[in-house]
C-alpha cells in the first residue's frame, strides 16, 4: 500500500512551524533560482536543497539525488548547447551546428537550477503535508479543499476494498489471475465495476452525514490545529528580513550576469555579496533549525 503524505523518515522541526512559514519558505526557495539565474546563487541553492533533502530523507534521498536528479541535470546541461548556438566562443561543430562555450555554461547553470528545484520539491513533499495545504487554501477554495480531504480519506479505503473484492470474487470462483488474456481483462474489469458501484453507492451515506452536520449552511469556517505562536513570529521576522534584503539586492541588479554573446559577470560588489549571504542564510535556515534541535536533544539526553 502506498502511504499518503510522505512524511520523511525523520521528525522535522521545521515541519512543526506554522504552514504559512513552510509554504513561504518553499515558494521563495523554488522561485529565486528560477528568476535569477546567477551561478553563485544557483550553487547555494543546489547545495542547501541537497543538504536539506538528505537530512530529511536520509540515504533514500541521496540515492534519489544520484539516480534521478543527476541524470536529469546532465540531460538539461546537454540539451542547451545542442539546440542553442548563440555565443561567440565556438569550440566544436556537431553535425554542422556550432557548440559554443556560452551555451554550455548556460546549460550548466540551467541544470543546476532544475536540480535545485526538484530537490526543493522533495523537501516540500516531506514538509508540506496535505493537512497544511488544506489549511492554507481551505478559506480560499473551501469546496475544493474539502474534496481533497475527502479523496485522501477515500483512497486508502479504496485500495483496501479492491483487495477485498479480488478475494471475494476468488471465493466464488472468479480469480483475476487465471484464464486467457481476455478472461483476465474481463475479470479485472468486473473488479473495477464492483469497486465503482460500491464507491458511488456508499457515498450516498457520506453525503447524508455531511448534510446532517450542516454542510451547505452559509458562512462555513475552516478550522485547524495550527496556531501562530511566538516561535513562528520569530521565524517569520527572520524570513521577512532576510528575504526582502535579498530580493532588494537582487532586483536592484547588482548581481547581474550576462551569458550571451559572451559570458561575463561583474565583480561581486559588497551589495551583491549581501544578497548572496542573505540567500544562503534563508536557504540553510530550516536545516540549521533542525541541527540545533538535534544538538539540544543530544545535550538533554546526555544530562540524564
Amino acid at each position: 500500500m502506498i502511504r499518503i503524505g510522505r512524511e520523511g523518515g525523520r521528525k522535522s522541526v521545521f515541519a512543526g512551524y506554522h504552514p504559512l512559514l513552510n509554504f513561504m519558505f518553499f515558494g521563495y526557495a523554488v522561485s529565486v533560482p528560477i528568476f535569477f539565474l546567477h551561478p553563485l546563487l544557483l550553487i547555494i541553492s543546489l547545495a542547501s536543497a541537497l543538504a536539506y533533502s538528505i537530512y530529511l530523507g536520509g540515504r533514500k534521498a541521496a540515492l534519489f539525488g544520484l539516480g534521478f536528479v543527476l541524470p536529469v541535470m546532465l540531460l538539461a546541461a546537454a540539451f542547451n548547447p545542442l539546440f542553442f548556438h548563440r555565443g561567440e566562443t565556438i569550440i566544436y561543430y556537431f553535425y554542422y551546428n556550432p557548440i559554443t562555450l556560452e551555451s554550455i555554461i548556460y546549460g550548466l547553470c540551467n541544470a543546476t537550477m532544475i536540480g535545485s528545484v526538484i530537490l526543493w520539491f522533495t523537501c516540500y513533499n516531506a514538509i508540506m503535508t496535505s493537512d497544511k495545504f488544506i489549511y492554507l487554501f481551505g478559506r480560499l477554495v473551501p469546496a475544493m479543499s474539502l474534496i481533497i480531504a475527502m479523496a485522501l480519506r477515500l483512497i486508502p479505503r479504496y485500495q483496501a476494498q479492491v483487495q477485498r473484492i479480488v478475494a471475494a470474487r476468488r471465493g466464488i470462483g472468479f480469480d483475476v489471475s487465471t484464464g486467457g488474456y481476455l478472461t483476465r481483462v474481463r475479470n479485472g474489469g468486473e473488479v473495477l465495476s464492483v469497486m465503482v458501484t460500491w464507491a458511488l453507492e456508499n457515498g450516498i451515506e457520506t453525503g447524508d452525514s455531511m448534510l446532517a452536520r450542516g454542510y451547505g449552511l452559509p458562512g462555513r469556517t475552516a478550522y485547524s490545529n495550527y496556531r501562530f505562536d511566538s516561535r513562528d513570529r520569530l521565524l517569520l521576522a527572520s524570513f521577512l528580513g532576510l528575504m526582502t534584503t535579498d530580493l532588494f539586492c537582487l532586483v536592484t541588479g547588482t548581481l547581474s550576469v550576462q551569458y550571451y554573446s559572451r559570458f561575463m559577470w561583474e565583480n561581486i560588489q559588497p551589495f551583491a555579496s549581501i544578497a548572496l549571504v542573505c540567500h544562503a542564510a534563508v536557504s540553510f535556515l530550516p536545516l540549521a533549525l533542525e541541527l540545533r534541535e538535534d544538538a539540544l536533544w543530544r545535550s538533554l539526553r546526555s544530562r540524564i
Binding site: 469546496a143 474539502l146 474534496i147 481533497i148 475527502m150 479523496a151 477515500l154 483512497i155 479505503r157 479504496y158 485500495q159 479492491v162 469497486m195 465503482v196 464507491a199 458511488l200 457515498g203 450516498i204 457520506t206 453525503g207 455531511m210 448534510l211 454542510y215 451547505g216
Partner: peptide, 18 residues
C-alpha cells in the same frame, strides 16, 4: 456545490487516484 455533488466528485477523484 451541494454536499452530494462534492461526494460524487471526491469519489471520482479518489477512484482516479487509486
Amino acid at each position: 456545490p451541494q454536499a452530494r455533488e462534492l461526494v460524487v466528485i471526491a469519489v471520482l477523484v479518489a477512484l482516479t487516484v487509486a
